[in-house]
Simulated scan of single mutants.
Amino acid sequence: MTDSKLPKPLSGIIPPMITPLKDRNTLDIEGLERLVEHIIAGGVHGLFVLGTTGEAPSLSYQLRQEVLERTCNLVKGRIPVIVGITDTSYVESVNLAEFAADCGADAVVLAAPYYFPAGQPELLEYVTHIAPELPLPMYLYNMPSLTKVTFDPSMVKQALDIPNVIGLKDSSGNMIYLHEIIQICKDRPDFTLLVGPEQLLAESVLMGGHGGINGGANLAPKLYVDLYNAAKAEDMATVRKLHNQVMELAMSIYTVGKHGSTYLKGLKCALSCAGICSDMLAEPFTNFKDAERAQVNSALEKLGLLSDKASC
């Protein structure tokens, strides 16, 4: 395994970076450059490439490698880069982890394979087999809404003994589950616990979590960093104020449209309106039309997230 300078635990805001696209298989290179600099300028603590928000399962293997390599070259070691390697193919997950190590990434993130639903003993075997083959330390990624499988607390407890498993990202939205994981990991202060849904960021940090991998931090990174810092300091007045702003962002931008894809469509549209990158989505999704774009633009104006020059 490659020697990693990754903080243990990794704490703070680690945005799950969107993948700026020009078409189905072409990266928006200029948009990627602006996005990376925009995110880093917000004071974030790391960057998560090829996650759910990055539409990784919908990207070609060539494009996954390109966005990873370009992002690592742009970051230049300023913050840790962690990389999603989830795939239905065990071998492809290992291949991408090896490529990530060659690019200079710091860790990888693995959800359960998302076609054949594995039982908990099978899932533990899978993690036990793959972890020692990876050249980088690994975070588990609990995403049951998309994988059909949960990393049960009992399984996570056993995974604590696997040397290369160093943390968990929980995107279940289930705070009872997260509280159970926090209890299980009390004797492992080096084990990272990060939450995905930004609506739960403040609560999770106040209860002992280490931060968030929150999609909205693509758009307003400083807001999420400030909320994390306030929760860490237990500054409840500031927590309430900033949590309310995060909720307003989520409820006004992620709810435009009718389908489960509205989160991705809304976030990419907002970044396009802000002049950062293209709003092209990977198939099977397409970007918002004029009526939805106008709704997103209006929401950004109310939230104060548009510069004088930016507009849809």
Results as ranks from 00 to 15, higher is better:
2 T>H: 12
3 D>A: 15
10 L>K: 05
11 S>F: 00
12 G>N: 09
19 T>V: 09
30 E>M: 14
39 I>P: 02
48 F>W: 02
54 G>T: 07
57 P>W: 04
65 Q>F: 15
66 E>F: 08
70 R>T: 12
76 K>S: 10
80 P>G: 10
83 V>T: 10
93 S>D: 08
94 V>E: 11
98 E>R: 14
101 A>N: 04
102 D>T: 09
103 C>L: 03
105 A>G: 06
108 V>Y: 02
108 V>T: 10
110 L>F: 05
112 A>S: 06
114 Y>Q: 11
117 P>Y: 05
118 A>G: 13
123 L>Y: 02
126 Y>C: 12
127 V>E: 11
127 V>I: 13
132 P>C: 14
138 M>K: 09
141 Y>L: 06
142 N>S: 09
149 V>G: 02
151 F>T: 09
156 V>C: 09
157 K>V: 04
158 Q>K: 14
160 L>T: 14
160 L>D: 11
161 D>Y: 12
163 P>S: 15
164 N>F: 06
170 D>A: 11
172 S>N: 13
176 I>E: 15
176 I>A: 14
177 Y>D: 09
178 L>I: 06
184 I>A: 12
187 D>P: 03
189 P>V: 03
197 P>M: 11
197 P>D: 12
197 P>H: 11
198 E>A: 14
202 A>L: 00
205 V>K: 08
216 G>V: 05
223 L>E: 00
227 L>C: 12
230 A>M: 03
238 T>N: 06
241 K>G: 04
241 K>S: 13
246 V>P: 00
246 V>A: 02
251 M>D: 07
253 I>C: 02
258 K>Q: 10
264 L>W: 06
264 L>E: 05
269 C>M: 04
274 A>H: 01
284 P>Y: 02
286 T>I: 09
288 F>R: 08
309 K>D: 13
309 K>M: 14
309 K>S: 15
